[in-house]
Amino acid sequence: MKEINVTLKVWRQDGPNAAGHFDTIPAPGIKDEMSFLEMLDLVNERLIADGKDAIVFDHDCREGICGTCSLMIDGQAHGPQKGTATCQLHMRKFADGDEIVIEPWRATAFPIVKDLMVDRAAFDRIIEAGGFITAETGGAPDANITPIPKTVADAAMDAAACIGCGACVAACPNSAAQLFTSAKVSHLNLLPQGQAERYKRVEAMVDTMEELFGSCTNHGECEEACPKSISIDFIALMNSEYLKSKFKNRKRLSQHD
């Protein structure tokens, strides 16, 4: 284990409507075995010891699964290590003398709450619009009644692995939420259980997404930034589902669906 000295340039902002600025905070004596967030914990302990306000940042499980942590590190969502959430990033990826710029996710749909913390409720709105299979408690048939080919179940799982952190939006020059939305559309639309609401789901989710987020222009930054390496192929799948939903003449079935 070795120790490095780094300097942080951290975005500080008192509230949603306050003006923000960068604070330069020296962080000497950082052990390279520390996680990035443990380094921030230490910096916060030192700030409190100096009577200053701790840096506000979102974090929780520190195992890369809850999707709470959300830092833009040196201009990269979740920092320099590919396929890794901020909480799983370790200081061994940095060198002695580095200056590290830490910012919140920047997107109109994710307003800053304070310092490095943002409000990602817009993601919840997309799920509420249709990111579910209607299956109320009690009426489910035996789980093995519908065999699902392993390849289909695996593909659905690949999409379902999304942790909802918002790195895709933060990395996108348009702040588009296509990767997040398509991951949930694909997870549910690929499965036999999801067929009944297939077209309604994709329409409702895409329409809500378009209301809240920017538009996709196929930069592919989202896949690069995704800590779960979710593929942009799912965006293609979502687009195809959306198109199909428009072509299907569902008026024969129902005026409203």
């Binding site: 579910f132 789980a143 080919p149 392993k150 259980q193």
Partner: peptide, 20 residues
């Protein structure tokens, strides 16, 4: 009932090649 319920909701549980 839990397994039935969660499967109906679309939880992608691991499957055998035959789909079970």
């Amino acid at each position: 009932n839990i397994i039935d319920q969660m499967t109906a909701q679309g939880v992608p549980f691991a499957r055998e090649y035959g789909g079970l």
